[in-house]
């Protein structure tokens, strides 16, 4: 009995790694640009479909496909911010919500038009089924473990980038005040675009892992967004390590919920989120 629960919680923690990966980009855009990109999940799903085309259509190895997609997403993020989001960032809040929402709808339906509504998955090879036996009936999948470690590494790297690098200092400066940034000669639009490019790269990484580990279809974006949002809010807005903890909480809640009844998995995640949010609306580790 104890073993079952330990196992389930362990699996939940690892699942939390994937959720944290979804959420890192959102956490960054919330923390730096102070806006929620409603198309966040759809962009990740879109990149997954691109990976599908590269691996399935062109027959590239998954790792190579991810390596190609990361720089493309980096540039894509830059352009998205520069050409679209920057135009509405200074306007009223309604505009930025609706533009990203419109983008979300466009992506979902374009994907459906191009790829059809089928549920897809990208093959990851032997890593998918490999496990490490820990004790008794507790096994840890190699893939989930790799994902969890990647999420931790990525957060560590982004934290370094944000707090120990020149561009990080500039990003935080613009985030503090766009007006002051202008006054000292920082080109805030470009810095925001670079931040969004970094977000794009994190999206590509999470899209890669998501495509191997879970099924996805053109309408999977919103559910990814909601989970990412929950992880970000639980962790405290703008706190990257908090986002990891938030992801783990959602992952564990889902795993424990699924232990009662498989159909309760997603609902359990939402309910735990709402319960914690009601008691700590500022998140567990607020930064601001």
């Amino acid at each position: 009995m104890v073993e079952i629960w330990t196992n389930q919680i362990l699996q939940g923690v690892l699942l939390g790694g994937l959720y944290a990966l979804f959420a890192i980009g959102l956490s960054l855009s919330v923390g730096v640009m102070r806006f929620v990109n409603i198309a966040h999940g759809d962009l990740i799903v879109m990149i997954s479909f691109v990976l599908l085309s590269l691996t399935g259509g062109l027959g590239l190895p998954t790792l190579a496909a991810v390596a190609i997609v990361i720089p493309i997403s980096f540039v894509g993020g830059y352009l998205l911010q520069r050409l679209l989001l920057q135009r509405v960032l200074g306007k009223d809040v309604l505009s930025i919500i609706l533009v990203t929402f419109g983008l979300s709808i466009v992506i979902q339906n374009a994907l459906q038009g191009v790829y059809g509504a089928d549920i897809r998955k990208v093959g990851g090879g032997a890593i998918e089924t490999a496990t490490i036996p820990l004790s008794g009936n507790i096994n840890v999948g190699v893939l989930p473990l790799v994902i969890f470690i990647s999420a931790t590494l990525l957060i560590w790297l982004l934290d370094l980038l944000l707090y120990r690098s020149r561009i990080g200092a500039r990003i935080r400066a613009v985030s503090d005040s766009v007006a002051t940034a202008d006054l000292v000669g920082l080109r805030s639009a470009r810095i925001y675009a670079i931040a969004m490019a970094i977000v794009g790269a994190t999206m590509a990484i999470s899209a890669g892992f998501m495509a191997i580990w879970t099924n996805f279809d053109p309408t999977s974006g919103p559910s990814r967004l909601l989970i990412a949002f929950e992880a970000v809010v639980l962790g405290g807005l703008g706190n990257l390590w908090g986002t990891l903890i938030g992801g783990i909480i959602i992952g564990v809640a889902q795993a424990v919920g699924a232990q009662f009844d498989a159909a309760w998995q997603v609902l359990a995640g939402h309910i735990v989120f709402l319960a914690i949010f009601l008691t700590r609306p500022q998140g567990l580790f607020p930064k601001y």
Binding site: F35, V36, I38, V93, I96, I97, F101, P222, S223, L225, L226, F229, E230, V233, L267, H270, I271, F273, L274, F277, L278, P281
Partner: peptide
């Protein structure tokens, strides 16, 4: 308890739940 875009997504979470 949420504002602006956070409220928007928060309302979505509630609806989903």
């Amino acid at each position: 308890r949420l504002r602006t875009a956070y409220l928007a997504v928060g309302s979505w979470v509630v609806a989903e739940t």
